[in-house]
Design a protein around this nucleic acid. Sequence first.
DNA 1: CGTTACGTTGAAAGGGTTCAATCCCTGTGG
DNA 2: CCACAGGGATTGAACCCTTTCAACGTAACG
Lengths: 222, 222
Amino acid sequence: MSEVKTGFSACCQNCGLQKVCFSNGLMKEDIGRLDSIVERQAPLKKNQHLFMAGDKFTALYVVRAGVIKLYSFSGLGDEIIQGFYLPGDMVGIDALQFDVHAFNAIAIDTVSVCSFPYSQLCNLAMQIPNLNHKLFSAMSKEVNESRLHSELLSKRHADLRVAKFIWHMVERHAGRGYASDVFRLGILHRDVALYLGLTPETVSRILAKFHADNVVTWKKRN
Amino acid sequence: MSEVKTGFSACCQNCGLQKVCFSNGLMKEDIGRLDSIVERQAPLKKNQHLFMAGDKFTALYVVRAGVIKLYSFSGLGDEIIQGFYLPGDMVGIDALQFDVHAFNAIAIDTVSVCSFPYSQLCNLAMQIPNLNHKLFSAMSKEVNESRLHSELLSKRHADLRVAKFIWHMVERHAGRGYASDVFRLGILHRDVALYLGLTPETVSRILAKFHADNVVTWKKRN
DNA sequence: CGTTACGTTGAAAGGGTTCAATCCCTGTGG
DNA sequence: CCACAGGGATTGAACCCTTTCAACGTAACG
């Protein structure tokens, strides 16, 4: 779906996502070694799970194309959305604490991922200090993203949340070199609402208001 | 302030926090090596900063006694509280992404911390696979805590947020072996409110309601 | 003993939720 | 090719809860 050039990356060296992948900045030689442990499975279809809460932890993933939604359930029934992962983002860090996944990860799109078996990744990291640091950095990034989410949720006014959310998505797209002023956001209003702690109706109304003010234009476009 | 037995831990070996510290589970010998790089400075006084946003990253910290508040500012003026760190918790992970601290860390209490200079910690981690894994695990824990915070904030009803917050604090105290049904929560209502995305007034009202229902009792007690 | 900072309590106002009805788009099957 | 079904988006009106603003109470500290 999303207009991503996957770049037909049979290997890391000519992957179009090098600038956003955690491998960015490693020496060519080291990237090669990393490449040798990557497993690239068949793409996930829409609504297929990458992993589910409770699954045993085996590997860290990097999104290659599409969007992954991380979510869980609270108390009874209500879904909580923790984040959306775009190409280049690392998924699965939640499982490192207990060797078991704490959340569910589902494909919103058709999604393909690079899979890094944890034990092998660890071995490699022990030999390549830079790689180890990159992993730390990626995890720190995950923490900070999550804190940003908290910041969003603590805004009292719904329009601020929506505005910041859109802005954040624009930035992430820009950081990936995609056209950032016009892009397809393959995320349901329902999911945006859940992510922002709002209802779909509210999101709809606010977007309508933005539209009226010509801040944002449509056809699933921004 | 908080009735913590600091245990006069001149070194890690006889520290009372071993069970909650990230070093938990390492071999005695390795803990010794870890101990050799720890720096234990003079305690922070109330309202003294451990680090501030923008500070260069030099070390990871583990709280030994007291409570650290992690916070930042949004847009203009309004404070956002990201979390409270109790003894045994690791602070400073936010800085790993860019080698610069993203948030402010301030002492709520009198606080003492163990400081682990990052470069030395890294060196050590490269030699002790278990230690490296513990670091990953600690970061994952940080991510998951943060996601829990998001979950709190996405609750619509204020009383649920407060209840879950108290419950979470009770659990954390219990996990540290403190009396979990009666403890001193050295956190201002103002700070609780900010952490929960509410106003102090609302928190006050809800606590009063809980009190009336005999769910929670007082004198800064639970 | 007065000052300051924090907590409580009250009443009014505003904004988001809720529930329900309608619309729109996509995909399906005749 | 068109009609229909179904999921999601939109819109409307009433309600409810939190915020806001203000005043008052209270504990700590010099």
